[in-house]
Design a binder for these strands. Structure first.
Lengths: 351, 351
DNA sequence: CTGAAAGCGCTTACAG
DNA sequence: CTGAAAGCGCTTACAG
């Protein structure tokens, strides 16, 4: 009869118990040695490390999570990874998280409220240390579950704070004021806006800022100059065409984000409408792409790195703090002038 | 003396035990009810569900993970989220994962082998069900740990399979053959290639395919026509400029990926070199951006959705299968002709 | 300095 | 149909 199979079989990954018996100590000692406890002899620690290396031991984090109720994972709820704004944010945020020994759990929220709720539940089940909510839905529902559980949460542009709920808001107002002022100085009076899907907070905020800026500069807000896109290039493309169908065309167009503006640029190109001669175009975000197209895109730029730092900082503060109220942070917006904007051609647009 | 505080204090999230006492049953029954076991009376199940709703109970998945050794999480190791190829892949993959009740753990691998190894260890600690490796480093090290643990792994373009290790490869050869054939038919004989960083598999594969295709079509491979970029736009920009400094300029340039080709387009624009008149440009990937620039980019396109499906399918097969050897899958590449390619101008480039 | 034991929250044979 | 108990792998007071 053979001995009990030792090297064959599914061979489960080594546990601390295996390491312990290999090193001739108890699991408690192994745990302490790996945790760097000063209670352990250098000699013992060495034996443990040797056993760890020999057995390729990797600790099972779910045991620790079970013990502490914290997983060192951070959930990030993203509406559309295809939008460079989000993927660039994610890159910065992931770097911060992993530098802090945390891992990023990706959750999608494309599928409206139902999707967001499911995502939130998934994250709660996994005892995330915190959650970043990028979509900024108007709906409160998904957030409430998080707040109820006191999970540190930070949203972008929700303009709302509360217990264990912080907000990082871009200074749209300031950016818009700069952009509209800049366009006005160039001689523009007919300025249009292509927003995103009406449901989302960010579109509302930027539209409001747009309208307020026009008023502040004494420019009439025209109903037909306010359009709704979809945050993607095709929406910007479509709405620029619609704007160009108007008898009295705008001479400048501001997009709710860069993709929208890039779509508008493409439409202008296709229609043989010169930019910035016949129409100036301004975006919002400052994605790396802006500089790859021709004409390059004038935009209200915001530092993705700063957003990521603010989000991560706010989460850590709430996590480590005494669970007080969240904070409201603001991110500056800077107008970057490139080739897509200029003086309007001197001709009466009405024929 | 007050009663033991019930509503104040940190109030830990409800556990199954709380649900049980609330519903007047045992935790075993709660577990069964939530698992949809047919052993539970409809009546009991109802009481349990009511208690769950009342207490906002969300199961703690780390307990389950501890029991089963599987976390229903899939790790995805990405080299650069800023590259649309990867973010578009990630979107598709995340959709598949969440449709299967799995969550995506993001891991970055920018920082060479050390970074990859750290990522792999993080994923192992979390008992991921599988791992997708996008970087395709030449180094074996990080992979070995995964294989050792029998964690289902799928890599892209590693051209390597093994126990619990599958590979999804793009058919570069076929794509290159099409592209070079197409350029030759247009009249091009001087064709250059801008690769990526030399260390990565994908650059080597595409360069090899490029050179093989030239030979097959009877075109001389010129040493000075082979350049190394960095997979990003600035690399393509830089190398196109270098190519244009040559006394005998190429009339067509193929980029290792779309970002490289888009950078080359930008450089040509800046240098006032007409595309496709003076130089034709071809990319590889088929990212959504290709259509946003002008001239739009001719490219060898590959379906991100198909790649994602293949990766997820391979992982599931290995996870559910008897742990046999992994599979080698291939993804077709299709040449999409847009505006950046055309006949070379009829003039002697030598002066 | 080290070890035995309890406990984190769930699941599931094993009894009833 | 339901419950008591063991066990997943770790950590940490509590003894020694």
């Amino acid at each position: 009869m053979r001995q009990k199979a030792e090297k064959s079989g599914p061979k489960k990954p080594a546990t601390m118990r295996d390491v312990a018996s290999h090193a001739g100590v108890s699991v408690a000692t192994v745990s302490r040695a790996l945790g760097g406890s000063s209670l352990v002899t250098e000699e013992t620690a060495l034996a443990v490390r040797r056993a760890v290396a020999k057995l390729n031991f990797v600790p099972n984090i779910s045991a620790r999570t079970l013990k502490y109720g914290q997983s060192h994972a951070i959930g990030v709820i993203v509406p559309d990874l295809t939008n460079p704004f989000f993927s660039e944010f994610l890159r910065e945020f992931e770097a911060l998280a992993s530098a802090n020994g945390q891992v990023v759990l990706l959750a999608n929220a494309e599928a409206s409220v139902g999707g967001a709720l499911t995502s939130v539940r998934q994250l709660l089940m996994r005892l995330v240390d915190g959650v970043v909510v990028l979509p900024s839905l108007d709906e409160l529902e998904p957030y409430q579950l998080l707040t109820l559980r006191k999970v540190p949460t930070v949203a972008i542009d929700s303009r709302r704070t509360g217990p264990s709920f912080s907000d990082v808001s871009l200074m749209h107002e300031e950016g818009m004021r700069q952009a509209v002022g800049y366009l006005k100085d160039l001689g523009h009076q007919k300025i249009a806006f292509i927003g995103g899907s009406p449901g989302l907070m960010i579109s509302k905020l930027r539209l409001d800022a747009f309208q307020a800026s026009l008023k502040m500069h004494g420019i009439t807000v025209r109903h037909e100059y306010v359009r709704h896109g979809n945050y993607r290039a095709d929406g910007g493309d479509r709405e620029l065409r619609n704007l160009m169908l108007l008898a009295d065309r705008p001479t400048a167009v501001i997009g709710v984000n860069d993709l929208t503006a890039l779509g508008a640029l493409r439409a202008a190109r296709t229609l043989n409408i010169s930019v910035p001669g016949e129409v100036s175009v301004v975006g919002f975000d400052g994605i790396e792409l802006d500089d790859l197209v021709s004409p390059s895109l004038t935009t209200m730029s915001v530092s993705r790195k700063l957003i990521a730092q603010s989000c991560h900082g706010a989460l850590e503060e709430m996590r480590l703090g005494r669970g007080g109220s969240g904070r409201q942070l603001y991110i500056p917006v800077e107008l970057i002038v490139r080739q897509s904007t200029g003086r309007p051609l001197r001709k009466t647009t009405k024929h």
